[in-house]
Amino acid sequence: MKKRKSISYAKWGYIFLIPFFLVYAVFSLYPLISTFVTSFMDITVDQGFISFSGEQEVNNGFCGLQNYTAVFTGEIGRSFYNTAVMWLLGFIPQIIISLLLAAWFTDLRLKIKAQGFFKALIYLPNILMASAVSYLFYGLFSQGGGIWTIINDITGYEGVLLDNAWGARSIVALINFLLWYGNTTILLMAAIMGVDTSLYESAQIDGANSSQMFWKITMPLIRPILLYVLITSLIGGIQMYDVPTLLATSTGYPGQSLLTLVMQIQNRKDASPGIASAICIVIFIVTAILGGIIFYVTEDRSDKRLARKRKKSAKEAV
């Protein structure tokens, strides 16, 4: 027995980690570092000579924070705002509806019938290509399109929502909502179903009602998946690209009100890599901070509270 125990499997842990970290280093970490370096460079593109087959890139060297100033002022600064607004408009209803649906589906008293059917349909939009859905909505909302006709018939409004900054943003948010609420619902539901049913049964015997069970049993126990949902939505939100691009083309029509940060990266990848890199790094910092906050709030707090409680009780015991 003793001999068996002394066998160390630790090396297998390292071996199994190799693919992930190798690929990460080559395709993410090195590019991230080089993006960081590029973000401090003044790179211009010289299109001058006919003898060259293509454009010639000229690196004018270190330029301090010049690229970052460009990110926070003018056009790109507005893209920051656009991205945040469209994410919020889509995410808030999404998390509310998803939690509600997940709670209903798993409610022991409510006993929703045909659950498989509902779930499959709710998730359906998510498997469809975001660009395809956006293009479809572009057709439906533009003048003479299906939804335009419905709105026109009901309200008599003859304008085109897509030509209006807030109208167009709301449509982006609506598409994001439609694409993702089913996904979120299923993830949350999976988490809720993972909760030991005997907890609910005993709560029911003790006379707890549905909302009590939801807030006192479900919510604390699904925290890890809730964290996962929040983080992925956050990451997805700042990456927003397909929907506004297909709805408004790369110009961000109307009046650049749909222009997001990532659209700016794509638009500037060749013409001004320095500024594009600065946007990348800003995205990096923002996601790191926001993600860190969510991580701290939803995961660490309970552990710390527990630790504090333990300390307290230890002190009292002394």
Partner: peptide, 11 residues
């Protein structure tokens, strides 16, 4: 927390 876009230009 880091999206692929954060390293897009370097990539």
């Amino acid at each position: 927390m880091v999206p692929t876009q954060a390293s897009a230009i370097g990539f």
